[in-house]
Design a protein around this nucleic acid. Structure first.
Lengths: 142, 142
DNA sequence: CAGCATCCACTCTGATACTG
DNA sequence: CAGTATCAGAGTGGATGCTG
């Protein structure tokens, strides 16, 4: 693992004599950040906006599958967290330009790393998934 | 995970009726993979299992906040996708050991990169979020 | 053009109770 | 110990209609 965040491991990884909960781990920012960026559209928008700035309907057309509602919601969320900048040009008709903030641009790299992983290994995942299903899934309510 | 999906790209996914520039991206495996790993517990388990193997109740205690249901579901999901290996030792009482597969271990690095980003920039996000809220929250159902 | 409001379906998550 | 079954609530995402 490459220099991990919650390095509490001196306790956890070696001895673990008692039920040391991973408080510092379970409650660490990773989960929160994933909740923000791990939804259906956020990371897509971040990577997209990493190339250039877009206008609202431009994004709507580019993604093709996202609803106005989710586009707006996602952009607002990213804006709220300081990842995306929203600039309104008071023209007629109005035009709004979305772009990444410096903070948002820093996210671009780790996100791309994960995206690359996804592209690279998706076939393996699909294969593993298919094999499991053929084996007879215990379904549950999954 | 029922909606947009690009099926196994190996052989079958070269010609789709799509009108967009982002096709290879918007419908690419990134979204699917994020849906798998982007839930509340998956990446936590992956990073945790990246250190060593764990038994079921050991994980349950370690994470402290996850329900049995979600622990089982998440493990099953990761197992289905070939990221986690589940080995049952036919002892009495039974013991089940969970560990990362080689594929799962490859995920560890990009995941850690993102985790590092999260830890590093979480304060900025929290700050940006706090400032936005003071500005006046939009109603909507966000 | 760039949204907001409303309704609705589906998913995710957790609490609780029970089993081999 | 290592799960499974069921119920219920919150959250997510989409369709449609309307506005400045």
């Amino acid at each position: 693992m490459s220099g991990t965040h919650t390095d509490v491991p001196s306790v956890v990884a070696h001895e673990l004599p008692r039920p040391v909960p991973l408080d510092e781990f379970a409650a660490c920012p990773v989960g929160e950040v994933f909740r923000r960026v791990g939804d259906r559209w956020s990371m897509l928008l971040v990577i997209l906006l990493g190339r250039r700035s877009y206008r609202y309907n431009e994004l709507h057309r580019a993604i093709e599958g996202i609803s106005q509602r989710m586009l707006t919601r996602t952009l607002r969320g990213l804006e709220t967290d300081g990842l995306v900048h929203r600039e309104v040009h008071p023209t007629v008709p109005p035009s709004v330009e979305y772009s990444l903030t410096p903070l948002g641009r820093t996210l671009l790299e780790p996100l791309s790393a994960l995206a690359d992983w996804a592209v690279l290994h998706e076939p393996e995942i699909a294969k593993a998934r298919a094999e499991r299903i053929r084996g007879g899934g215990p379904s549950s309510d999954l």
